[in-house]
Design a protein around this nucleic acid. Structure first.
Lengths: 235, 235
DNA sequence: GTCATCCATACTGCATACAGTATGGAGCGA
DNA sequence: TCGCTCCATACTGTATGCAGTATGGATGAC
């Protein structure tokens, strides 16, 4: 312990470490784990649109009781992955082309706004963070890593932009919209990745240069391209 | 029964009435009723920000078991009315000025977009519907009816615009955002109402005239005015 | 007096139990 | 053969039970 330590803070563990420095692996609640598990099953096609998700069967599949399953299904309903029919239970949502268009439209609105804000607010630290994610994502897409990983990196880039934009309400809404968009795109994300990261590069540069309008417009076009690809593949 | 009836459809009740013509008062699920009840208690200040919402006490208050209460609280958490702390349960959310700004910002984005779409899509039927709501709302605000009613009519107008704009994803997101904004504004909605309906009038005219840009901009300003009022009153 | 520790309390999170209802097919009549 | 009725089945919606844990005050050490 140095002299400054004893002056700045009380002695002991609390003086050297701060809250969260040593994260325990306290696992998330069962309902959250169930939510993630079922969402993955849906996103990666293990559960087909229209399929009936009986609470009991999912509970048995995951080795838990109906209760956390029930709560997870209600959460997934809000996020647009399942539909709850009164008295019938949960069914995997059947996305329509129109709905996909709408999701991308709203996402484009919110993200291009966030991107404008990001271009205004970004500092050196933010630029560095974006560069790191870009480097990793660009490399992963060129190596052709598995779709799950590519999807994750794609989300990381978009989320970082939104976080720098610093509108938490928007961030929360986009979290859901991105997961839905990811579902619609899941099967084609691998093909999309290369050109996608080229666009990410341009967005990053505009944000770093504080070019508000350019950043917003590039993000708008970027998301439009995703949507166009969706329509082109007829999904 | 006329001749055409027997040709167009089978005889009997099914031939004369169609699905939904005779709505039974099958009440919503308990969790939905609980959600509405607790949300009202929060919005109208009966439950103060920061207050701990113990499942048992709410269950007792409403005469139901903990189960539907629990599910209602999780739903309210998604909507931003309560915070769930792991292992502690639900607490009435404590909105910050920043958060209120963000909600209004996002709402302005989505609603002005919806309003542009509405100006594109609106037909005579839609204009009539807006006129009806406007007439009722304008009258109610001049008579100075109770805040609950004014809030409801305000929402009806905005929802009608969004429905005519016909982006269901946006509609769903705005439903939550409007309820949150309504909470922030609850105490001052009565004062706001008169000028608010004057602005609604202008928006309606722009939509009816299919003036896309004007409609979008008016809605943007309209929501900015709400937000400004919020900041002016220091809430 | 101050600080760490211990413990009673209250409440959550999950599991289980029970009652009510939507559904599809068997059975029956026309 | 066609259509209606009735019923067995399965599953949801709600209630209750139980184990684990966060918390704040009491207690004791320094």
């Amino acid at each position: 312990m140095t002299a400054s330590d004893s002056l700045d803070a009380p002695a002991g563990i609390a003086g050297q470490l701060s809250r969260g420095d040593v994260p325990l692996m306290r696992r998330a609640s069962l309902r959250e784990q169930v939510r993630q598990a079922v969402e993955e099953l849906i996103v990666f096609g293990k559960l087909a649109p229209g399929e009936h998700l009986a609470e009991e069967s999912i509970a048995e599949l995951l080795g838990v009781s109906r209760q956390p399953v029930r709560e997870a299904l209600q959460s997934l309903s809000v996020a647009g992955f399942v539909d709850l029919r009164a008295g019938r239970g949960a069914f995997v949502h059947e996305p329509t082309a129109r709905e996909a268009r709408e999701v991308f439209h709203v996402r484009a609105l919110l993200e291009s706004d966030s991107c404008r804000l990001a271009a205004q607010n970004v500092d050196d630290d933010g630029v560095r963070r974006l560069e790191d994610i870009y480097a990793e994502g660009h490399a992963a897409s060129q190596r052709g890593e598995d779709p799950r990983r590519l999807l994750e990196l794609n989300r990381a880039f978009h989320r970082a932009i939104t976080e720098i934009g610093a509108n938490r309400v928007s961030l929360a809404l986009l979290a859901d919209l991105e997961r839905r968009a990811g579902w619609y795109l899941a099967t084609i994300i691998a093909n999309r990745a290369p050109s996608s990261w080229a666009e990410h590069r341009a967005i990053l540069d505009a944000v770093a240069a504080h070019d508000t309008d350019l950043a917003g417009n590039l993000m708008l076009n970027h998301i439009d391209h995703s949507r166009d690809l969706l329509e082109f593949t007829g999904q």
